[in-house]
Simulated assay, not measured.
Amino acid sequence: MPTPKFILDLRAKIGHDLLWLTGISGVVLNDAGEVLLVRRADTGGWALVAGILEPGEQPAVALAREVHEETAVTVEVERLVSTEALPPSSYPNGDQVQFLDLCFRCRALHGEPRVNDDESLEVAWFPLSNLPDLPAHDQECITNALSPDPLPIFERP
């Protein structure tokens, strides 16, 4: 999926300067106790399904949209797992970005996972006991999503 228009419009004004964005990510679980992962086209690594919240879009609605757009799986968003300001990063073109990530736990309702857009190279269910290498943030999200504590995790003062 191409860069959202609102980001292109902002970049036309601010260039490569740091842009604060709201990211959404999901720990999608099925009835077999597996987690849905995508192998990202940009990095080649496995990761949780994630995306960018569009202006005016509700976070849970946006995540359900992202999961379906990327994997063809329909989900029910069950709860907020965590909120975290991720470290600043940059893209190969020089754009600087920092995300506030809202991670949600989701339950798969139906749909066979498949690559459904150009953001992923592969899509697959993985048993929790046999996960591929994942970014540390994604590992933390999975751990927090499996916690019996329903309260979201956030940095406390």
Rank of each mutant, 00 (worst) to 15 (best):
T71Y: 03
S89C: 06
R40Y: 08
E69Y: 02
W46S: 09
V49F: 04
E84H: 15
L80I: 05
W46M: 07
G94H: 03
A62C: 12
I24H: 12
N93I: 00
G45D: 11
V97F: 13
V73F: 05
S82I: 05
E84L: 15
A62R: 08
A72S: 15
N30P: 01
Q58D: 15
E84W: 15
V75D: 03
Q58T: 09
G33F: 03
P88N: 09
L36M: 03
N93M: 01
P88F: 03
R39P: 00
R39V: 00
G51S: 06
V77R: 10
V67N: 05
Q98G: 11
P59T: 02
V61G: 05
G94V: 01
A62Y: 05
T43R: 06
T22Q: 15
R79N: 04
L19M: 15
Q58I: 07
G45A: 13
L86G: 11
A41I: 09
V73S: 08
L29Q: 02
I52C: 08
V38Q: 14
R65V: 12
Q98K: 12
N30A: 07
T43C: 04
E54R: 14
V49R: 06
G44A: 03
V75T: 10
L53W: 13
Q58R: 12
W20M: 15
V38L: 14
S25K: 14
V35F: 02
D31C: 05
A41C: 10
V73C: 09
Q58M: 06
R40C: 10
V35P: 03
G56Y: 02
H68Q: 11
G26T: 02
V97L: 13
V81I: 10
R79E: 00
G33P: 05
H68P: 08
L29P: 00
V77W: 05
L29F: 04
V49C: 13
R39L: 01
G23N: 13
L86N: 14
W46E: 07
D31H: 09
S89L: 09
A64K: 12
G23L: 09
T83M: 15
V61Q: 10
L53A: 11
A47P: 08
V97Y: 12
L18A: 10
G26L: 02
V67K: 05
V35G: 01
E57T: 10
E78R: 14
S90C: 04
S90L: 00
F99S: 12
L53E: 15
S25Y: 07
F99R: 14
G33Q: 06
S90P: 05
L29N: 02
G51T: 09
V73H: 06
V35A: 02
R65H: 14
E66N: 07
G45T: 08
S25I: 05
N30Q: 07
T22K: 11
L29H: 02
Q58C: 08
S90Q: 09
V77L: 05
V27R: 00
P92V: 06
